[in-house]
């Protein structure tokens, strides 16, 4: 565990908390893409298949349970909670998530560390995580007014990815044999997807204006 990895995990945790605050306290999920949330639930379900079989640390198991629990409960709230679901921008959130799931699955069948069920699922979860933010970014671009919590949610997710890249550089330099091409390339692609959002986020922050993405 290094400072980049820990900050990355904490930023990731913070992003989930921001979303839960929005849903629990404000009882609104306006501007949040259900498609992205469903993809994240699938990402965690397929990546953490080993949660009960290979123990790494209490920290690791706890975080996995938090990410699994939070992603599924967010999906449940957006789909079934009688107040929250009314604020869901269903007509705007039209990204077809199956178009992301299928190519990622085929890629995982071709590119994996070992051709076993667990390893293929693990590779699939990494490829899917890399593109899971796309429905959310599309929704943000369509939404006229992006509220602060939604903007912060996406910003924190992007920051988490950027910190993970620093973590990999640190681990590569300090740990012998730390080479994980699948993780690195999909992680890099994922971070690049945030570049455009980051640009407009910092612009609005610098000029003290409301975040607005150009169409």
């Amino acid at each position: 565990m290094n400072i980049f990895r820990l900050s990355g995990d904490m930023t990731h945790l913070a992003s989930v908390l921001v979303l839960l605050v929005k849903i629990h306290t404000i009882k609104s999920c306006a501007g949040v893409s259900l498609k992205t949330q469903e993809l994240y639930a699938l990402v965690f379900a397929t990546r953490y298949l080993d949660i009960f079989t290979s123990y790494i640390s209490l920290y690791n198991t706890t975080m996995k349970l938090i990410f699994l629990g939070s992603s599924f409960s967010i999906v449940w709230y957006m789909r079934h909670h009688k107040i929250v679901r009314r604020s869901y921008d269903k007509d705007q959130d039209t990204f077809r998530h199956y178009f992301l799931i299928l190519p990622c699955f085929l890629l995982a069948l071709l590119l994996n560390e070992k051709f076993t069920f667990k390893e293929v699922m693990w590779a699939f979860s990494l490829y899917l995580e890399a593109v899971a933010i796309l429905p959310q970014l599309v929704l943000l671009q369509r939404t006229r007014n992006i509220d602060n919590l939604t903007g912060q949610y996406v910003f924190l997710l992007g920051a988490y990815r950027a910190l993970y890249i620093l973590n990999w550089i640190y681990r590569y330099l300090t740990e012998p044999h730390f080479v994980h091409w699948i993780t690195w390339i999909s992680g890099l692609v994922q971070t690049l997807l945030y570049a455009d959002f980051f640009y407009y986020y910092f612009q609005s922050w610098k000029n003290n204006q409301k975040l607005h993405l150009p169409a």
């Binding site: 290979s54 790494i56 560390e113 044999h177 993780t183």
Partner: peptide, 10 residues
């Protein structure tokens, strides 16, 4: 080079 180590990242 693939290391058969448990995946310790989230």
């Amino acid at each position: 080079c693939y290391q058969d180590t448990p995946k310790d990242e989230l």
